[in-house]
Design a protein around this nucleic acid. Structure first.
Lengths: 196, 196
DNA sequence: GTCTTTCCAATACAACTGCAATGCAAACGC
DNA sequence: GCGTTTGCATTGCAGTTGTATTGGAAAGAC
């Protein structure tokens, strides 16, 4: 067994390049050679690590999900232990919104994959467990009278804000104001609690 | 001036075919020849009516917007004059959600174009006025205490529900329940008014 | 040393892409 | 009639696509 290389590191390197290409020019521009060029490697090497393009796409999709999971974890951990629910929710959602540079790039890639998965059911299947898990988590943070529908609504709101941010229909400020308004709706009027 | 044909009808015919291809296989599968085949015409004819692919895409994008506008109009007109605001909002949003067959197909196309426009600013520009106009309209329908943020939130919620519906994360029933929960939040608890 | 397995670069190939060019038929103005 | 303009089908072309194949260099196993 010669020439040991970190197999998974190579694949992540390639997936990163793919995401860069997709963020800048869309998934349609993702080809073996483009990705290879963006990664600074030969096309043959890409082929060595991904026997087929579908395989590469599937790996990149899972890499996208890993990234957003990491984004969540980082935001939550920065809050310390036992943060107030409303602040936790706001931080968590804000961390997932495409508000600035790198978050926007990730958001563009995620949006591209959403459209990609919408016409490829087998690819979309891997996305489902993540959101249902999120719904449960969010539902646990909402104050009493609210059920699972409010949690779903909050996440759908997040998704929609993301779309509008990427489309340029909303500025980051507007998106955050909208998010805060929704949180007001869920947690009660602004001055009514100390969680603001 | 010989052989008069309805120029615009041809272009709509082609755009319809494009949307069918995009709904089934995504925008990446949209090529001159595929679209021509789906429309049952020759590739040369497509070229005759659209000098370039970008031109064809731009026309199809505007056709998508026309469709959703027509969808809104049909839903609103079916309600008759002076419907209660809450019912009007619910009807309007439900009409735009990809809940069943043809609405889902249109939704997939719309999602594809959203991702398309996210990496092509000049294409996305045409989408902006529509939503800002919608925000104003929705804001006018909401009861007193609510401002533009709530209108934006409602539309973002709609967008997010659409994404989740297309991704299979939500069933139509769940999406509608979520929408109703949000309307409860905005219009007051279920039994408090007669608008339910 | 040699062997053998892994890594990767290069090339080849058929299929497809958008687009330009060509040619012809239909139909209206005259 | 005739000419001219429009509608469209066909073909050609250069470039790109995904994938298969080939070949060789590097490095552990022996």
């Amino acid at each position: 067994m010669p020439k040991i290389v970190d197999h998974d590191a190579r694949r992540r390197l390639i997936a990163d390049a793919l995401m860069r290409v997709a963020a800048e020019q869309g998934l349609e521009a993702v080809s073996l050679r483009h990705v290879a060029a963006a990664a600074g490697v030969s096309a043959g090497m890409v082929q060595h690590y991904f026997h087929t393009k579908d395989e590469m796409m599937a790996f990149a999709l899972s890499a996208v999900m890993d990234r957003s999971e990491a984004r969540i974890r980082a935001a939550v951990e920065a809050l310390g232990a036992d943060p107030p629910p409303r602040l936790l929710l706001r931080t968590l959602i804000a961390a997932l919104l495409p508000l600035e540079g790198t978050a926007m790039a990730d958001g563009r890639v995620a949006l591209a994959f959403l459209a990609y998965a919408a016409v490829r059911p087998e690819a979309g299947q891997s996305l489902r467990p993540g959101t249902s898990q999120m719904v449960d988590f969010v539902a646990g943070l909402l104050p009493e009278p609210h059920g699972a529908e409010s949690a779903t609504a909050l996440l759908a709101l997040m998704e929609g804000l993301g779309v509008y941010l990427l489309g340029g229909q909303l500025t980051p400020d507007q998106a955050l104001a909208t998010l805060d308004a929704q949180l007001d709706l869920l947690f009660g009027p602004p001055g009514a609690t100390l969680t603001r």
